[in-house]
Nucleic acid binder design. Structure first.
Length: 704
DNA sequence: AATTTAGACTCAGAAAGTTGGGA
DNA sequence: CTCCCAACTTTCTGAGTCTAAAT
């Protein structure tokens, strides 16, 4: 294994200031990588420049951030010099909204206090609740997305709901597929308590079995998991059960049995497996599609989740709890008024409710038993246009940037914080970060950053280190605008009302994600924090794909694409664990390379011999030309293998899929494919080609 | 009227399952 | 040709965002 930075999950790479002189792209801070063109393209990189400032060769539509680095303040209005006049007409938004800003009105009565949270995330200040909404959508933003069709909805209860969007007129589907019932273990398979076999009821056995199969996972070493499980298991066991605690429980017989069953299944003959598969498909067939207004739409998910132990991601407070079985009585069905109500395999039970709500797209839903806040839904697959084509364009972005730059100079702490938060969201594509309860994993986003999550380093460096969505670590050191640096430093030290802050206090204590979204929405209909993530992902890809490349063969071009895709994934912090067996696979590849190189050498010897009119080794003599051809072919194979190996290693900690599916406007990719004569299928798999069918006839010169 | 809660999506990575291309 | 393994897909189960409704 190499010891390069690449072997670490990307979030853990330490970013040396470029001043230390590494030219290796991977050694540069993420933020630099994101916004910087290949070193080869422009020599040095803007090591000491603020976020987003690079020495790139400016593509005219690129964000101002990519403009010239001469001005350390990549943001001030001069940067808009790079924007064609035509795009600048709307520069007034920020000023306008600020003109109407009623400064420092009455103090906001304290906090959305989430009182009993051990003093954590509380808004502990009395900062004025800043920014008033600029009364209406500003004219600047009138090319926002077209109004959605809104129709009165007579189907729903009462007049209140009259103004919602109608999603369908006719809707027919077969409901949901329930998981198989629990099958009891053979009577000779029993768990042991204190060495003695224990008889369990069916219900108890099912729960025990859930635990048994986790024997070899490292959940067994997590006390919280064990405690949570025991609490629930205890309830199922009832009072005065022989089993008094987990310590003396031995689930080995159950585990072994489960493993044996698994092996048995694997060992089935081809025919048997096929038969099982066909049976399964036949059972599922009717659930797979829904009829929506005469169209056949694929149902995204029609399976009811089987019971099991809740795992959660990261250190989830509820890990190990029993997730009980879902029955029809728990499920609400949504279906067209005249359609037959779906059947279910539980005679005597009724669906919890059957609705005919035309304003939603789900077919069925139920409440999650563990994380009651959420519910699971079965709906049809969204396949329409790119969701994030929000109407946010370069000129809006410029306006918004000017607005938040102004906020840095505000006297009002809340506005300062708002300005900094927006800067991070725009530059680093952070998520909004809503407040969470204590029975959820302790993860944060931009608005919920704590003081301990940021560290101010010399030279306007800020180091972020926090757990984001799915408890994925975000670690990134970036150079920020000096004004932001000064503000963040201040926010780390004391709150708006001058109280000193503790590490676990909120960095932006005067505002939250809702405030931020409100501000954005007032600026432009349809604008929210997450739009920036999508927008920045797409614009980044677009910029990278327009960079000149000298790749000629398809594989090299695909590698170019993957590199661009990787940049986006890094921007969005889409990480994955290094696939198991990666090291082994790399070793194999290098062995193969070695072999290929030897073969090449052989061929070169053969060529020499051939040119002298001799045979080489025990082979028949071939024409020099034929040997030449063989050499070229071999070289091509080697080059291809080299590219593949490098790409593979390059991407081992980066998950490309998420951005490809959810963030990148497919038109960018399709256009690139056309320009570079790369077949679509090299980039999009079959599913994606289907999903993005609407983007396929885009103009090759399409610019995001 | 400010918060809280409900509701409806939208995004997430790992694991399981399937396929297909090369030795 | 066929078998094996890596690559690709789908499934699984969670976890965010954001708006609207309820308190």
């Amino acid at each position: 294994m190499s010891d390069s930075d690449d072997d670490m999950p990307l979030a853990q790479r330490t970013h040396k200031p470029a001043a230390e002189g590494s030219d290796d792209e991977d050694d540069r801070p993420l933020a630099h990588r994101q916004f910087t063109h290949k070193p080869s393209a422009n020599g040095n990189t803007a090591a000491a420049a603020p976020i987003g400032t690079t020495t790139s060769t400016a593509v005219s539509v690129s964000r101002p951030a990519t403009a010239d680095a001469t001005d350390l303040n990549g943001w001030d209005s001069s940067s808009s010099d790079d924007i064609p006049l035509a795009q600048r007409k709307k520069a007034l938004v920020a000023q306008k909204s600020q003109a109407t800003q009623p400064k420092g009105q009455k103090a906001k009565p304290v906090a959305k206090d989430i009182a009993n949270r051990e003093g954590k995330r509380k808004r502990q200040d009395e900062a004025p609740k800043g920014r008033q909404a600029p009364s209406k959508k500003t004219k600047a933003l009138d090319d926002a997305p077209p109004r959605k069709k809104r129709v009165a909805n007579p189907a729903s209860q009462g007049a209140k709901e009259e103004d919602k969007e109608i999603k369908w007129e006719k809707l027919r589907h077969a409901g949901v597929l329930f998981p198989p019932e629990y099958v009891r273990l053979p009577s000779n398979v029993k768990m042991l308590y204190d060495g003695q076999p224990v008889d369990l009821t069916e219900e108890q056995e099912e729960v025990a079995q859930m635990f048994a199969i986790m024997k070899e996972t490292d959940y067994m070493r997590k006390q919280l998991f064990l405690d949570n499980f025991w609490n629930d298991f205890k309830k199922v066991l009832g009072k005065d059960h022989v089993i008094k605690g987990l310590k003396k429980c031995d689930f080995t017989p159950m585990y072994d049995h489960a493993m044996a069953e698994r092996e048995k299944k694997k060992a089935l003959s081809k025919e048997e497996k096929l038969a099982i598969k066909q049976k399964k498909e036949a059972d599922e067939a009717k659930f797979k599609y829904a009829q929506v207004d005469g169209r056949t739409e694929q149902v995204g998910n029609f399976r009811v989740e089987p019971p099991g132990l809740f795992r959660g991601r990261g250190e989830h407070p509820r890990m190990g709890k029993v997730k009980s079985r879902i029955y029809p009585r728990d499920i609400t069905i949504n279906i067209g008024m005249e359609e037959p109500i779906p059947e279910h395999p539980y005679p005597g039970q009724q669906w919890k409710e059957v609705r005919h709500d035309k304003t939603v797209t789900w077919l069925a839903f139920w409440k999650e038993p563990i994380v009651r806040r959420t519910s699971s839904m079965c709906g049809w697959l969204p396949n329409s246009t790119f969701k994030s084509d929000s109407g946010l364009g370069q000129n809006h972005v410029d306006d918004i940037r000017k607005m938040y730059e102004k906020d840095w100079d505000s006297k009002d702490t809340q506005r300062q914080q708002m300005g900094c938060a927006l800067y991070f969201i725009d530059q680093l594509a952070l998520r909004a970060g809503h407040e969470k309860d204590e029975d959820e994993a302790d993860t944060v986003g931009c608005c919920t950053l704590k003081v301990e999550n940021v560290e101010c380093m010399p030279g306007d460096h800020i180091k972020f280190d926090f757990l984001g969505k799915d408890s994925i670590r975000y670690e990134n050191e970036v150079v920020v605008h000096p004004k932001v640096y000064a503000l963040i430093k201040k926010f780390c030290q004391h709150s708006a009302n001058n109280k000193p802050k503790k590490p676990e206090d909120q960095l932006f204590e005067t505002m939250d994600a809702t405030d931020l979204n409100k501000t954005l929405k007032d600026l432009m209909d349809g604008l929210s924090v997450k739009v920036f993530r999508t927008y920045n992902a797409s614009i980044t890809l677009d910029r990278l794909l327009w960079e000149p490349s000298d790749s000629e063969v398809i594989d090299a071009k695909k590698a170019d694409y993957d590199r661009a895709n990787k940049e986006v994934a890094i921007l969005c912090n889409h990480q994955r664990a290094v696939p198991k067996g990666h090291a082994g696979q790399m070793e194999k590849l290098s062995e193969r390379m070695h072999k290929l190189n030897e073969e090449l050498l052989e061929l070169q010897h053969e060529l020499k011999a051939s040119e002298k009119g001799k045979a080489y080794g025990d082979k028949k003599r071939r024409d020099p030309e034929r040997v030449h051809a063989a050499i070229d072919a071999k070289k091509a194979v080697i080059a291809k293998a080299e590219i593949n190996a490098r790409v593979k290693d390059d991407l081992k900690t980066v998950a490309l899929g998420t951005s490809k599916i959810n963030y990148l406007d497919p038109r960018i990719t399709v256009a690139w494919c056309k320009r570079n004569e790369v077949p679509m299928e090299k980039i999009f798999n079959k599913t994606l080609v289907t999903k993005f069918f609407w983007a396929m006839d885009v103009d090759p010169d399409f610019k995001f």
